[in-house]
Write a protein that binds this DNA or RNA. Structure first.
Lengths: 247, 247
DNA sequence: CCCCTCCTGTGGTCTAACCACACTGTAGGC
DNA sequence: GCCTACAGTGTGGTTAGACCACAGGAGGGG
């Protein structure tokens, strides 16, 4: 690389150069969601770096949910720009939970904070609430197993969060859920009586949705906070709920 | 790679294998913050993959703020495990803001939400508040320029957020700030009278800190919301403050 | 005892090659 | 004329091997 031989001070690593170039293209609007990056080999030649460095940059973008790499040829192939902030935040949070520097209790607390804000700001007529209602109907069916119920539960809560119309809150909510998915099954294993819990959760879900649809944001926020904290408390997460939402 | 020749179904890319291995080592506690990863060449041999794939995985972890790579030898060299969730969330948010799929207004709104929660849960005697107080004193000095003032402002708000003691909220606050740092200078350029604004910001800061120290969380939350929304409104971000914190 | 030098091990970068994949156009058979 | 089979082309995925800059440590010479 020329910068190592000529420049006296070039602290930027090669792949960061590529990263900066791509980010600039995005900011300037020359690259937009749905668009395709130049091929790795072309980009390497264009930026005068090796394909290795280009690939490292693309790998980072892929991990951040900014691009999706597809082999082959045709419209779906190549590296195309997407926008999946949830993926980025989710894997980041999951990794830091693994390092045990992000307590699970803090994640739950943050989830309560974000979700109660979301329901208190949800627009009663929004299509996301219709989705939530549909999901609730599915969960009421008797033949859903534990795993299916939990999957629907996740989608229900995400639909609620989406109804507030704040993309950042939605992404953070999704990532928080994703980061503790691994703990969810452990939690349910601790439950003394799943059928009773499921029944209670169903009832609480209906109550929350009703409050949102009645435009009673304050009540919805209180219900959703109790709902989440109650669940984790029952499942044995010691510190959940020790900090009330509104002091 | 053997999986390409023998296995019929191996959708996991090679670098993800490395990623999974490292994440597992973290979860199991065999790797902890401050510890060092095996050298890239050793890890490649151990996992039966190429060094390139190991490097791609490490690059992702580096971008996520999970490790820090250092050349040379000695105690500070090698790839050591750190934990900087703010970096991960920050660059992710910044990139998605660049794709224009995360509106800046949503970021500001989320910041108001998180920060008003944080001040209403801050412990009056916490050391972070002492830091905040010190920063405030520095900002009161007459000889601070605009840039220095803004830098201190960032640290003041982060100190406030840290005082709530929730690592996730702190990390998210920091990342939100980082993701819109590029816009901050543009905002200040729009201000009609910087000296007047700075004076008002100073007064509001003191008011917020006093409320927190008096354990009046509700007042602190209201003040901080007004503080942030007022600033962005004055700087010309149209949609800031259109959604009140407490309906 | 100190300083200088060489050695070793680390990450950083590059090159060249091969693979699997999926579309695309064309040549062939019907 | 139509359809099928196949080689061609371009994409990302992976690997091996080489070289570089860097920083500490071990050894010798002063």
């Amino acid at each position: 690389m020329w910068s190592n031989h000529i420049n006296y001070y070039c602290p930027m690593k090669t792949h960061q150069l590529v990263l900066a170039w791509i980010e600039n293209e995005l900011s300037e609007g020359r690259l937009a969601v749905g668009g395709r990056l130049p091929a790795e080999r072309s980009l390497a030649e264009q930026l005068k770096v090796s394909r290795t460095s280009v690939r490292e940059a693309i790998r980072i973008l892929e991990a951040m949910g900014v691009v999706r790499a597809g082999v082959g040829s045709g419209p779906d192939a190549g590296t195309v720009v997407i926008s999946d902030p949830t993926a980025a935040l989710g894997s980041a949070l999951r990794l830091h939970v693994a390092t045990q520097h992000l307590p699970v209790a803090d994640i739950v607390e943050t989830r309560v904070l974000l979700e109660s804000w979301a329901v208190s700001h949800a627009k009663p007529g929004s299509p996301e609430l219709a989705d939530a209602s549909r999901l609730l109907a599915e969960m009421d069916s008797d033949d859903v197993g534990v795993d299916a119920f939990l999957a629907l539960d996740v989608r229900f809560h995400l639909a609620l969060a989406d109804a507030a119309g704040n993309a950042v809150v939605s992404a953070m909510m999704g990532s928080l859920r994703e980061s503790i998915t691994g703990y969810a099954s452990r939690f349910t294993a601790n439950l003394p009586d799943w059928d009773a819990t499921a029944g209670r959760l169903r009832a609480e879900h209906h109550g929350i949705l009703a409050a949102v649809q009645n435009n009673d944001g304050e009540r919805a926020a209180r219900l959703v906070a109790d709902h989440i904290e109650g669940y984790y408390r029952e499942a044995g997460l010691a510190s959940a709920g020790t900090v009330p939402l509104r002091p």
